[in-house]
Amino acid sequence: MIEIRDLTVQVPGFRLESIGLEAGASDIFALIGPTGSGKSLLLEAVAGLVPVQGGRVRIQGEDVTGLPPEKRRLGLVYQDQSLFPHLSVRDNIHYGVRYHGLDAATRRDRFEHLVRRLELEQILERSTIRLSGGEKQRVALARALMLQPRALLLDEPLSALDPVFRDDIRVLLRSLHQELGIPFVLVSHNFSEVLFLAGRGAVLRDGVLEQSGPIRDLFERPATPFCARFVGMKNLVPCTVEQGRARLGDVTVRLPGADVREGRGTLGLRPEDIVLVEDGDRSCDHVLRARISAMEGQGFYFRVSLSLEPGGLSLSAFWTRQVVDRHRLQPNDLVRIGFSSRCLHAIYE
């Protein structure tokens, strides 16, 4: 387990302020946030690579705050893999062995297991400069795992990879996590990657922790309007909640039980949760009439801007190209849209 308590890090022009997090052995913990929010800095602070001004870092119960990085036994994999270009793949994997007092048999067994597991047999003698992105990432993982770290810190491990390698590596990361039983801390900008890999996570903003918890909560139950916007909850409407109900345009909507409090706040609804309602469809708790004000193709999806009628409240929806084509949707069309109560999320002031 990794425990971070009130961690404060000051570097020129930036400050991480009183960060508190926990990542258990069964967690892939995702750190998300805009560029420059301090995710990578937090990862490096945990690794001991930047000095901290306050707070504690514990790994498996041991306080490592005062230890240099080489004594922490944490694996670190960067986006650019940071393989040593003057060493072969084999020498990269063996790089840290001499500092960990491994006997020859353990060293050989671990090496052979990792080489087999990460399918590196064919490239062991190659220079790391000549490897593909996916190969480099597998070598970087093998190099870190060779030392049986107590946790693995991954700084955007997939973002520099081609899509074909990205899928392979993220499947590999998930299966490695299940095999190793150590916490993985993952910094990422990619939401599909985070949702695929992580069970828990945190949102950082300008060096401050905005929210942490189960990853689905970050995306479906954001704690602040900033978190909501950041995770793509594009429909945010000021509202007043009374007796478990709120107004959305001219319509009163019922909020899901767990969320309900009394007071003013913001009502959030993900664009993916708004569906086009066909005649006879009774699957939605709420059905409203809206006019399509604009449609923007985004590959396989359309971002559809809607204006509720009556009232003119603007909403956004993501609909597949298939839906748009089947209904021959055009701007200015009047449509019926719907969503279920459980998709609504109130963020209170």
Binding site: L49, P69, E70, L76, F84
Partner: peptide
């Protein structure tokens, strides 16, 4: 790149070993 030195540190090498094994050869 400083990240090479950081990767070396995370693998157990101290500052001097990192300098001699990574920075100097490069």
């Amino acid at each position: 790149p400083t990240r090479l030195e950081k990767a070396s540190r995370s693998l157990g090498a101290g500052m001097a070993a990192t300098f001699l094994r990574v920075t100097l050869p490069l």
